[in-house]
């Protein structure tokens, strides 16, 4: 099988208006920056960006462009707002979250990672004992009042749990250090983070890989994401970036 696509256009084909797109990365580490740049160039709008922990804060230039172009309808994240209140207040993202122009949904990070895992593993929902006694127990946490859907609660073995649903993105954009033509992927250090589970979750997973290997060249025992979860592979150069405070 050869999943290597010829260019970014082919990598993002079918990613159209209104798509839910998972974006790998945790702050600055493991963000698919070149796929995000292709998304910006494509000018596709109405996007729901399903994140894990602030990849857009770590790739600030790309965030700025996506917000400025009005491409984002909604963001799902666990830590997607600037840490500094004053910095956040100046940023167009936060202004649009305040005005409701961008919908912003927030989950505990472990719950969010399980939502992707459930989608990849064919589990529609599960009971999770995190967030009990907080706003999480009351409703989905969002800046849009009408979308604060009430939670189903159940006590299991004496622990109160909330019913949490799988989150299945249309596309996942992931970043890997190396990969082969069949989509087997390896990540480097803490750049692995959400990339593996998002690759499992999406209907179409597109992986940008810094080092493209021939099929069979990756050590079978050392593959992190088996190629069955990956549909398109695009080789990209390694780009240096600055790690800035979020």
């Amino acid at each position: 099988m050869n999943k290597v696509v010829k260019d970014m256009r082919e990598a993002l084909s079918g990613l159209d208006y209104g798509a839910t797109v998972a974006v790998g990365g945790f702050f600055a580490a493991g963000v698919p920056r070149l796929l995000l740049r292709a998304l910006i160039e494509k000018e596709v709008k109405g996007l729901t960006l399903a994140c894990g922990s602030g990849p857009l804060l770590g790739a600030k230039d790309e965030l700025d462009a996506l917000v400025e172009n009005g491409q984002i309808r909604k963001i799902i994240d666990s830590y997607g707002l600037f840490r500094s209140a004053s910095r956040g207040a100046r940023h167009p993202l936060e202004q649009k979250v305040r005005s409701g122009e961008i919908e912003f949904e927030v989950y505990p990070m472990g719950t969010l990672s399980e939502k992707y895992r459930m989608a990849g593993a064919g589990i529609p929902a599960s009971y999770i004992p995190v967030g009990i006694g907080s706003m999480v127990e009351q409703s989905v946490i969002t800046n849009i009042e009408g979308k604060r859907k009430e939670r189903e609660i159940r006590t299991i073995d004496g622990r109160t749990c909330v019913l949490e649903y799988a989150l299945k993105p249309d596309f996942a954009l992931v970043h890997a250090y190396s990969g082969d033509s069949e989509g087997n992927l390896r990540y480097r250090k803490t750049a692995r983070n959400f990339n593996h589970v998002m690759a499992m979750a999406a209907r179409v997973t597109v992986a940008e890989v810094e080092n493209l290997a021939a099929s069979g060249d990756l050590e079978p025992d050392s593959v992190h994401t088996p190629g069955i979860f990956v549909h398109r592979v695009i080789p990209v150069p390694r780009i240096a970036f600055e790690i800035t405070n979020v």
């Binding site: 840490r83 990070m109 995190v130 009042e145």
Partner: peptide, 11 residues
């Protein structure tokens, strides 16, 4: 911010 914030891994 209309009821949203950064939960991260805290909960």
């Amino acid at each position: 911010l209309n009821g949203v914030g950064n939960i991260g891994g805290s909960m």
